[in-house]
Nucleic acid binder design. Structure first.
Length: 250
DNA sequence: CTCACGATCAGCT
DNA sequence: GCTGATCGTGAGG
């Protein structure tokens, strides 16, 4: 099914996307974080900005476990000013800056001061494609990447956590928002679950971390919008992995 | 206060 | 496949 068909009538056009009236409810997020990492695949991220909507289908996530559990999570040593949202209610946005210039967006999981979250690593654009293109292009010098994005290649617009935040204009100002608020600038609505979900180790982790062996990156095997960076495990996930994915983070 | 580092990306070989 | 950019963050003195 193409992205245009998934979004419903007119869904591929930036002015035609009408999201369902209701967002995913709080109860959707109140569950073990590994389950949420899988359940978020296929759901639709919606960004409202100046009354205009951008939307994309989530195709790649990473699970981050809680305090004292996951030594690759910001929450591992307890709450800090940066990651305090992870310790609040489930279904909130946790946005932080990485590498000096890029942002990453997470969804807080479970609640009960769990310190758990799911990183959104990639979406397939459904609506607002030209705005995403303009925002990505604005950051690029004249060169091969800018020329490639000028036309076509929609699947690359939000392919990776930094690109996703560039395309959707997500920055620190959107940290701590309630993703169940259909009136807000950022929320999630119901989509279709993928038919073929695969799990790999997470990207960009310190190999010495004990959590390195856990397969906590989930993606839709049928989507071409899944990230392909050198550390995205594109080759590795074809091989057997020594330790099965834990069902729960605790 | 200082310092080391990173849940990444783009461009080049 | 490899490298530089770039600055917020958290830990330690």
């Amino acid at each position: 099914m193409s992205p245009r068909e998934r979004a419903g009538p007119g869904g591929g056009e930036q002015h035609g996307f009408v999201p369902p009236r209701r967002t995913l409810p709080r109860s959707f997020y109140r569950r073990p974080v590994v389950e949420l990492g899988q359940a978020l695949l296929g759901q639709v991220l919606v960004r409202r900005r100046h009354g205009v909507l951008c939307a994309g289908r989530i195709v790649e996530t990473e699970v981050y476990g809680g305090e004292g559990v996951d030594d690759s999570a910001h929450s591992f040593r307890g709450p800090t000013p940066r990651c305090e949202v992870m310790f609040g209610a489930a279904g909130m946005s946790y946005v932080y800056m990485t590498q000096g210039a890029l942002f990453c967006m997470n969804v807080s999981a479970q609640g009960d001061r769990a310190g758990k979250a799911v990183l959104l690593r990639a979406v397939e654009p459904l609506a607002g494609v030209e705005q995403m293109r303009a925002r990505r292009r604005a950051r690029l010098a004249e060169g091969p990447t800018r020329r490639r994005l000028q036309r076509g290649h929609e699947h690359e617009l939000a392919q990776g956590p930094g690109r996703l935040c560039l395309a959707f204009d997500i920055d620190r100002q959107l940290n701590g928002l309630d993703l169940t608020d259909e009136q807000g600038p950022l929320f999630l609505v119901r989509g279709e679950a993928p038919g073929d979900i695969r799990w790999t180790p997470r990207v960009g982790l310190n190999p010495a971390a004990f959590s390195f062996r856990w397969r906590w990156r989930a993606f839709d095997a049928a989507s071409d919008a899944v990230s392909k960076g050198r550390s995205a495990g594109a080759r590795r996930w074809r091989r057997p992995w020594p330790e099965a994915c834990p069902l729960r983070a605790d």
